[in-house]
């Protein structure tokens, strides 16, 4: 685009500069488009975030209401610690550590919990929505994983404010990790937890290929997760043999393990071993999810698809 005639020479420079910019911009956009075509999953995350933003009010309500039982549990522990006298401990926990533990469960939960992904996957199968993924060059598992990630990102951005305020109110109990290595291991463990949570939910949702109503099964698994992953209480206040037994299941790695890393209760060779086992569960659950999908697809008859 040339500068219109009769325009001040100064302005023509501006025009030229604009033109240049526009070319550069188009170039950048082309690159972006290509990248998106190569990697549609990035696009999925973007759309997922936009989609789940419409639920921000629900997310906020969930985060706020979720704090109430948390406060209740902390009050109950306070009553217990007070009746035992000052400086007392329950298992290996002082009162401050106990409060820290519950605050951390909230944080890890916000980072990793599966929200409604399992229901949606089950519904996709039931309604025949997965048919399109059998034709498109996009993998349903990773597609859902992207949506799960975007759901977590949105939830975090909404829940961050109430949860941060709550933690600040109780900040004298909130311990920071011992050093950066610990914190790094915690982050690694949390990301394993997120994957583990997702693959387990995904596998459960695959039941929709065989049964009409999966919600009961999901709730039954959730009940076990709730108690055995450390939602209700830290697992090391349980009798020793129960705790050891639980470590044969994936449940402790869904919540308790990353927190124990953060609080420095698991360190050294124990920590390495724990991370490896956690990663092992992630891989195992991934293959179980793949296996369930492949078996399910054989039975799938695209109802209404």
């Amino acid at each position: 685009m040339a500068a219109p005639s009769g325009v001040h020479p100064c302005l023509s420079v501006v025009y030229k500069f604009n033109k240049l910019l526009r070319q550069k911009f188009c170039c950048a956009r082309n690159v972006l488009c290509k990248a998106l075509a190569v990697n549609p999953y990035r696009h999925v995350i973007g759309i997922g975030i936009q989609n789940s933003l419409t639920y921000r009010f629900n997310f906020l309500a969930r985060a706020l209401f979720g704090l109430i039982p948390l406060m209740a549990v902390i009050y109950v522990w306070r009553a217990i610690f007070e009746s035992k006298g000052s400086g007392s401990s329950v298992g290996a926990y002082s009162y401050a550590e106990m409060v820290s533990y519950y605050l951390l469960t909230t944080v890890v939960d916000a980072l990793t919990a599966v929200n409604e992904d399992d229901w949606q996957i089950a519904a996709d199968i039931k309604d025949g929505n997965i048919s399109q993924f059998l034709l498109k060059p996009i993998d349903y598992l990773w597609f859902r994983f992207c949506l799960f990630l975007s759901g977590r990102i949105t939830y975090l951005s909404v829940a961050a404010i109430p949860v941060t305020i709550f933690i600040l109110c109780l900040q004298r109990f909130f311990v920071l990790p011992a050093d950066t290595t610990t914190f790094f291991c915690f982050l690694l463990s949390v990301s394993f937890t997120a994957m583990l949570q997702f693959f387990m939910s995904y596998t459960m949702a695959m039941l929709a290929f065989w049964v009409l109503e999966v919600s009961t099964f999901i709730f039954i698994l959730f009940a076990f997760e709730y108690i055995a992953s450390g939602h209700l209480f830290p697992l090391d206040i349980l009798p020793d043999w129960i705790e050891r037994l639980l470590y044969f299941t994936p449940f402790p790695y869904q919540l308790y393990f990353p927190i124990s890393v953060y609080m420095g209760k698991t360190s050294g060779p124990e920590l390495t071993k724990g991370l490896l086992i956690q990663f092992g569960w992630v891989v195992a659950m991934y293959f179980l999810a793949r296996f369930a999908w492949n078996r399910g697809i054989r039975k799938y008859s695209a109802v209404g698809g």
Binding site: T54, Y55, F59, A61, R62, F65, G66, A72, V76
Partner: peptide
């Protein structure tokens, strides 16, 4: 989208048992 609030109320049952 009030369903979130309704399910949120479910959390309050937790307090009733303490």
């Amino acid at each position: 989208r009030a369903q979130g609030i309704v399910w949120g109320y479910y959390n309050l049952f937790n307090i009733a048992r303490m």
